[in-house]
């Protein structure tokens, strides 16, 4: 063999190892921990980022005051935020989730802010002409215009979160996919690393094809097919 099998396991070996780790190892609890962290961070970052993005998109004063901070947030290395928070708050679950939220937040803010800026003022006129109440305008005019941007922020944000959650778990946590991969790394256990990565990618596919894409199809079904 050209490549030693210990460093280059075959897909069948990796598949079998996934099964073993899932049934007798800690794969499922680790996936559960990582998913929980990712989902909590995702929900908080999306909610906060959408609210702040709308605020910055609507108010020029607020945008002037805080847009530099958004740029800082977009460009500060993720690892710096995580290390600083771990030093300040300790190797806690709270610090990990907060670090993920702070890393994702600027991206959501920037995307939503652009979405709000792209609102068509003609629809505001429509709302005024027909005296549509504020909440109705919000539901029928503002939210549908914002949805493509929310979905874009969700998709890019989710891919970012998957990556940084794992890095932060390597840096300091008591379990999760990243933590386990760091353990495998110490033993040069490539098969274990591939098995965890495969399981993780399967979860990402489930999110993409069973949640995000159907949601996108439903929300944007009014769009003209290109």
């Amino acid at each position: 063999m050209l490549f030693p099998s210990r460093l280059f396991p075959t897909p069948i070996e990796v598949g079998a190892h996934v099964w073993t780790l899932a049934t007798t190892g800690k794969l499922l609890p680790d996936l559960g921990k990582t998913l929980t962290r990712a989902v909590i961070a995702f929900v908080i970052a999306m909610a906060l980022g959408t609210a702040i993005g709308i605020g910055l998109g609507r108010s020029r004063v607020a945008d002037r005051l805080f847009s530099a901070w958004v740029v800082v947030g977009l460009n500060v290395p993720a690892i710096v935020i995580a290390i600083v928070l771990y030093i300040w708050l300790g190797l806690t679950e709270f610090a990990l989730i907060l670090a993920v939220v702070l890393n994702k937040l600027p991206l959501v803010i920037a995307t939503i802010r652009e979405g709000v800026r792209s609102f068509d003022p003609a629809y505001d006129d429509l709302g005024r002409a027909f005296r549509m109440p504020f909440l109705r305008q919000l539901r029928l005019i503002a939210v549908p215009q914002l949805m493509p941007f929310v979905l874009a922020a969700a998709r890019t944000g989710l891919s970012l979160i998957w990556k940084i959650v794992l890095v932060f778990e390597v840096l300091g946590s008591d379990g999760g996919v990243g933590f386990r991969i760091s353990v495998f790394f110490q033993f040069f256990d490539i098969k274990g690393i591939f098995a965890y990565t495969t399981a993780f990618i399967l979860v990402v596919f489930v999110f993409e094809y069973l949640i995000l894409r159907p949601l996108e199809r439903r929300v944007l079904r009014w769009r003209q097919p290109r």
Binding site: A122, D125, A129, L140, W222, R223
Partner: peptide, 14 residues
Amino acid sequence: PAGFVFQDARLLPW
């Protein structure tokens, strides 16, 4: 509110 018809149809595309 009056029945207003704009220069464009101004329908909500969604």
